[in-house]
């Protein structure tokens, strides 16, 4: 008799509630797969609106990941390695977008970077640059909501690899920059990859902040989620097809995370 069996049967109420939870999570996904009009799947995939949305989603989500790598890595390093006044305050501020409703993030971005915004106004007056309702605005909105995932993941990795190896590198004559390049970042690579995947996943699904700050213009700011939202009202079949595409992308990310991150101790 196995050790588990020797402990007795699992309590029935527990099993029943767990079954409800599993059903709630699995059934909608299954119905989406079943209801997807597979016959017209590839012809729909070829339509201009879908291709535009796919292109914009791919482009903006990749740029978001690049933005996180270039800007988020230094921020994570600073939070993990440098003692400065207000560090814990900054860390708290960085995590706020994690829990902020995306629509609120969009409104906040408008107040800052909108045409009459605190930063956007002077930007428009001085350089004639208008951010809202551009593809750039999509990337900014996505970076705003994705960066916290990336920064927290990388900061965690930097903390767990510890300052110990930075000290060793210094005793061997390495500058801080060299140490970062040759020791700190390679050791934090699992966190960087996991953070990138999380940021990418967050960006793929971004809807609220994007539609508020960047709008929903086909060819410039209409991403996959925005297109799904639009088509759902007139052509639910198309919406289901598009949703299927995003589901596949999400599952692919999850699989990548499992290999890269979840199984890495």
């Amino acid at each position: 008799m196995s050790q588990q069996a020797a402990l007795g049967r699992p309590p029935t109420p527990l099993v029943a509630l767990a079954a409800v939870a599993a059903t709630l999570l699995v059934v909608p996904l299954l119905t989406l797969v079943v209801d997807t009009p597979w016959g017209s799947f590839f012809s729909l995939l070829g339509s201009e609106a879908v291709l535009d949305a796919l292109r914009i989603t791919a482009l903006t989500s990749l740029l978001t990941v690049v933005g996180c790598l270039v800007l988020g890595t230094p921020l994570a390093w600073l939070l993990a390695r440098v003692d400065f006044p207000g560090r814990s305050l900054l860390r708290a501020a960085v995590t706020v977008p994690l829990v902020l409703p995306p629509v609120v993030a969009g409104v906040a971005l408008v107040t800052a970077l909108g045409r009459n915004g605190v930063v956007g106004g002077p930007l428009h007056d001085a350089f004639g640059v208008t951010l809202p309702y551009t593809t750039t605005a999509v990337v900014i909105a996505h970076t705003f909501v994705s960066m916290p995932f990336y920064v927290l993941s990388v900061e965690g990795a930097l903390r767990s690899s510890g300052e110990r190896y930075d000290v060793v590198a210094a005793t061997l004559g390495a500058t801080r920059w060299e140490t970062l390049r040759r020791v700190t970042l390679p050791l934090a690579m699992p966190g960087i990859l996991a953070g990138s995947a999380l940021a990418w996943a967050r960006s793929l699904g971004e809807f609220g902040a994007t539609i508020t700050f960047a709008g929903n213009y086909p060819g410039t700011t209409q991403t996959m989620p925005s297109l799904i939202y639009t088509t759902l009202q007139g052509d639910p079949e198309v919406a289901r097809t598009l949703s299927m595409i995003l589901l596949v992308a999400s599952v692919a990310i999850l699989a990548a995370l499992r290999n890269r991150w979840l199984t890495t101790p």
């Binding site: 190896y165 000290v167 060793v168 590198a169 210094a170 005793t171 061997l172 004559g173 390495a174 020791v183």
Partner: peptide, 16 residues
């Protein structure tokens, strides 16, 4: 630290 010409063998080795 990096400007001191020293070699330090730590108790736990701390190999990269």
């Amino acid at each position: 630290v990096r400007e001191r010409r020293l070699g330090y063998v730590f108790q736990d080795q701390s190999l990269f």
